[in-house]
């Protein structure tokens, strides 16, 4: 019996085989993009490869990295979370207010995580159990979180945070004086934190039974359900994780800025978060993506805007390039599906 799929594969040219291999490992694209970009920038952009700038980029990953990790979980399970960036502000202002009032760093951090997680839980219940459309649900919570933050603070930034909090979380550790830099350069705590989170949550997503169930839920919810996956619980959990990630982002950003504001992360960065995740291999249809890919997608975007700032080229050209790369990556995804 002739099997069509057999001759399709057996007649494949080496180029086609390479294409298949690339298709099977979607994280390769962002890794390759980032490496190529890093080499080009290191050779052409002054100061790009300086230790200070490398640590600067590393630290910047901590700003959006957690949100990207959360978005990856949600998107792999077939959803989307538009609310995470305003949840950051809502969590931050409450936690910071408590911190200022009590001088307790611990209480403030716990509150930030709790508020972030509760928004995630609300999203999760609405999407997973009430079967509401993720786009609409998270769009609504996005507005709710923003409104809440403004109402809670009367649009005033919260300041006067405990020094211990700011010093611990925005610190640079292990100062180094490598190279010609006259002042020591440390490793940013935010970067280390996001790296640890990416490794841990990347491991969970790619290697554990829970992670596989997240992929299966996103790949085909109905098949997953019949196969015995508790899909609602899985969907719910991804939104909760995204909420906790927003809480962690609130801690990192509040410490770094020394204040909590109602607009710490704006809508334009939501685009960056989704772009990093999609460049990293995720699909809006679910079932695809990886933490490794997402982190390299984010690294790519961060290096791009960093290099443009170093060069003094208009940041608006960087926006044009980011948007074009995103469209190209989505185009590749469509090709890959064929």
């Amino acid at each position: 019996m002739v099997d069509e799929s057999q001759f399709r594969a057996s007649g494949a040219s080496p180029g086609l085989k390479l294409w298949h291999w690339i298709s099977a490992n979607p994280a390769l694209l962002p890794v390759a993009l980032s490496v190529a970009m890093a080499i080009i920038f290191a050779l052409t952009v002054p100061k790009f490869a300086d230790l200070r700038n490398i640590m600067n980029i590393f630290g910047q990953l901590g700003f959006l990295g957690f949100l990207c990790i959360g978005m990856t979980y949600v998107m792999v399970a077939g959803g989307i979370d538009l609310s995470s960036y305003t949840v950051v502000s809502a969590s931050a202002v409450v936690g910071a207010t408590a911190m200022v009032a009590t001088d307790s760093t611990l209480l403030g951090c716990v509150l930030m995580l709790a508020i972030g997680c509760s928004f995630g839980i609300v999203n999760g219940i609405a999407v997973a159990y009430l079967r509401m459309i993720p786009f609409i649900v998270t769009l609504s919570t996005m507005v709710v979180a923003e409104g809440f933050a403004i109402w809670f603070t009367q649009a005033q930034s919260v300041y006067g945070l405990p020094d211990a909090f700011i010093d611990n979380f925005s610190a640079r550790i292990l100062p180094m004086t490598l190279g010609i830099s006259p002042r020591p350069v440390g490793i940013p705590v935010a970067g280390i934190a996001v790296l640890v989170a990416a490794l841990a949550l990347g491991f969970v997503l790619s290697r554990t039974i829970y992670g596989r169930r997240v992929y299966l839920t996103g790949a085909n919810e109905e098949t997953a359900r019949i196969s015995g996956v508790k899909v609602r619980r899985i969907e719910f959990s991804t939104y909760a994780i995204a909420g906790i990630m927003a809480g962690i982002t609130a801690i990192v950003l509040t410490a770094d800025l020394g204040t909590a504001t109602t607009a710490m992360v704006r809508d334009v960065r939501l685009m960056d978060i989704i772009a990093a995740t999609v460049i990293g291999g995720a699909s809006l249809k679910g079932g695809k993506g990886s933490i490794l890919g997402t982190m390299f997608g984010l690294l790519f975007l961060t290096m791009l805007s960093n290099a443009f700032n170093l060069l003094g080229v208009s940041p608006f050209i960087a926006m044009v390039i980011k948007g074009s790369v995103l469209v190209a990556v989505i185009g590749l995804d469509v090709l890959r599906a064929k």
Binding site: P46, N53, N56, L253, D256, M264, N306, N309, S314, P315
Partner: peptide, 26 residues
């Protein structure tokens, strides 16, 4: 005088990143 311009799109965190980039640039 050379002016190196960055824009944060009203994003507080992005302005901090931009400032870091400019500091890195020296």
């Amino acid at each position: 005088i050379e002016l190196v311009f960055t824009a944060a799109d009203m994003d507080v965190a992005k302005q901090a990143s931009d400032a870091n980039d400019l500091i890195s640039r020296g």
